[in-house]
Structure formats: structure tokens, C-alpha cells
Computed example of a mutant assay.
Amino acid sequence: MGKDYYKILGVSKDCTDDDLKKAYKKAALKHHPDRNKDKGEEAHKKFQEVGEAFEVLSDKNKRAVYDNYGEEGLKGGAGGPPRGAGGMGGMGGMPGMGGFPGGGGASFSFSPSDPNDIFASIFGAMGGSSGMGGMPGMGGMGGMGGMPGGFGGMGGSSPFGGGGMDFDMGGGPSSSSSAAPEKKDFERPLPVSLEDLYKGAKKKLKIGRRTLSGRQEENILEVDVKPGWKAGTKVRYAGKGNELPSGASQDVVFIIEEKSHDRYTRDGDNLKVKMPLPLADALDPPAAGTKRQLSTLDGRSIALPLPTPMPGRTTIDNGRTTRVAGEGMPISKTPGRKGDLIVEWTVEVPQRLTEQQRKAVRAALAG
């Protein structure tokens, strides 16, 4: 029994092109070998099946043949069409699919494309090879090399992240008349630490591009990260991408992504941080004006006054906040100004008490 491409992608038989693309992206990311290195051959097989299913179902001609003749008929392995498919005789001459001689037995030559080429084209590769059969707009990504080598491991440049600072735009312009419209921009996420977004930084990135002649070129681009930039900020380099059949070159666009921080979180122009408050200080607040030191994102140390009990109370509640004006994120559109720092005090409860301490606590808090 042949493969059920609809089941592989988890879509219905009346699915739209958008449904297919969304299903493919989800399945391809889930089963990509780079994410399943412990599964070896099984992962490669599943990834191949996902790409094959998408290649067939996203092409109306291949999909029509598959719907009527199944996988065996599509690949030329069936002796004749299945029951109910006799009306397909008039479809002879499908590109790359052989024909329906006399309306009888099917004779096709379809074979699946490299799943890495399909993956590359869907996730942003520009241009590509012309070896994608009759699948419109699915040019490959020459030089992708199974993905890890092609991107040089740049964190965020592939869907799985990494550690380097190299980007490879892969295969050059497609010569296929069925290629997708030229993409004007080559977009890639650029993960940046919260410290760098606070202080500003310069990032040097090596960019690989292809010319119309097929040559591979490398350029070094410097991104001047401004203090206060937010996630989603776009940095454009005109004409630094692949050369296009029109003679123009794509723009390279980096999209800023904010890396998570182990202590600070960002809230617009403000910063939030949690500070521990010993249980003893919560139950018996120190003298007014007592302070605790906090290390900032730019390495300074600032003194934070401990919160005071709410009116009518003698103890400090867990979750009390202290707002420090002007110690938040720089505001990029208003140089010299910063948001606020919001400190949340979290009461620390001891994990262990000695027998003597337990008795003292119970005696102090009893009744």
C-alpha cells in the first residue's frame, strides 16, 4: 500500500496551499535530522517523507495524479490505474509525469527531490537549483550542505540556532520558467543579548552570496546595535544579497531578536528584576534606609532601598515592588532617556531549620 501523503502532513484532502505550507513547516521542523540526531536513519526517513508529501501535494498536476493513482501510479510502479480512475486518460503529457497511454496503464517518472532543497526554499533560501522537478517556485538552496554547514551555525540563522556569525544565502538565481517571483530581501534573525541591547554593540557578520555567473562571494557586514533597540528592529543592507535575473541584487535584512536573560526581563522601555528578601527581614524589617546592592546590565552597582511594610502592618509582604526611575532600558528614539527599573522583592523561605529553630519559630508565632 502506498504512502498517505495527506496523513504524513496531517491535512485533509481539500486542504489549501496555505494549509499545506503551514503543515509542512511544522512537520519539517519537528522531524529535521538536526533536531533528532539521536534517531539517525529514522529521522532522515521521516524528513524525506515530509518533503516528498509536500512536493507532491503542493503541485496541482502531481496532486491530481496522486489522488487518482496513488503513490505507485505517481512513481511508475503501478500496472494500471486504480478503480474509478478511468476518466484520467485525457491528462497525458503532464510535465515530468510521463503520460496515460490510451487512457490505460500509467507510466510516470516522478522521483522525490532532496528534502534539504525543499526545506531551504520554504525557510527563506533565495533562488536555487532547477532540479526540483515540476514543483512551482521550489528552487533549492545550493551550498546548503544539509543546512548546518551552509549557515555556519549562526544563532537564529537556521530555525534551530547555533553559535557562529556566518550566513550563506545559498543557491543562485533559478533559470526555471516556473520559479517563484524574485525575492527582494534576504531576511535572517539576529539574536542579541539584553546587555548588548542595553549598552549597544557592534556585530561583524560574514555573508555568503551568489552572482549570476554562479560565483560565491563573501562580504563582512557590521551591524551597529544601538542602545534601546527592541525585538523586531530591522537593519537593511541594500544590494548585499544574491544577484537576481533582473540584474539587481537582493537587500540583506537582519531582524533583531532579544535573547533571554537569566535575571532581567524587559517590559517595553522598563526593566524588571527579582530581588531576594530574607524571611527574617520580611518579618522584622530592618531600620529605614537599609539598602541592598544590585548589579546592572552595564556592570554598575546600585543601592536599592528595602521596601517598607504597607500601612497598618509591621511585616513586608512577598511581592512588594520598588520602582527606580531612569534605571530601565535606554529609549532609542530619545537619546539620554531611560525607562524605569521595577524591582520585585521575593521573600526567601528557609529550606531547612534545626530543631531549636523550629521550636523558636513556633513559639514566636503560636497563637
Rank of each mutant, 00 (worst) to 15 (best):
L304I: 15
D269P: 02
E327Q: 15
R313C: 06
T314W: 12
P285C: 08
A282E: 08
A282C: 03
T308R: 15
D298G: 08
I331A: 04
G268Q: 07
A288L: 09
T314V: 11
A287N: 08
S295G: 05
D298W: 00
M275I: 10
N318G: 15
R313T: 13
G312T: 05
Q293E: 15
I316A: 01
E327P: 00
S332L: 11
K272W: 00
I316D: 00
L297E: 07
M329K: 02
D262A: 11
L294S: 08
K291F: 05
A303Q: 15
L304P: 03
T265R: 11
T290Q: 08
P305V: 05
E258A: 05
E258D: 02
D281E: 12
P305E: 14
D267M: 04
G289N: 07
S260V: 10
V324W: 12
R266H: 03
A303I: 01
I331P: 02
R263G: 11
L283S: 08
D298P: 06
N270D: 15
K274C: 02
G319Q: 05
T322C: 04
A325T: 14
P305G: 14
A303L: 07
L294P: 09
N270L: 05
T314Y: 11
T296C: 09
A282W: 13
R300P: 03
G312H: 08
R323D: 10
A282T: 06
A282N: 06
S295D: 10
M310K: 15
G312V: 07
L294F: 02
D281A: 14
M275T: 04
L283P: 07
H261E: 01
D298T: 10
D281K: 12
M275S: 03
E327G: 01
Q293P: 12
P309Y: 02
R320C: 09
K291M: 12
D281S: 13
L271I: 04
G328N: 04
A288T: 13
L271W: 12
G319A: 08
A303T: 07
E327K: 15
P311K: 11
V324C: 00
G328Q: 02
M329H: 05
L279V: 11
R266M: 06
P278I: 05
E327C: 03
L283R: 12
P286R: 05
L304K: 07
P309I: 07
S332Q: 12
T315H: 09
V324M: 13
L304T: 02
M310I: 05
T296W: 13
G319P: 04
P309F: 00
M310Q: 13
S301H: 10
T321C: 00
L277K: 03
T290Y: 09
T314Q: 11
R313I: 02
K272R: 14
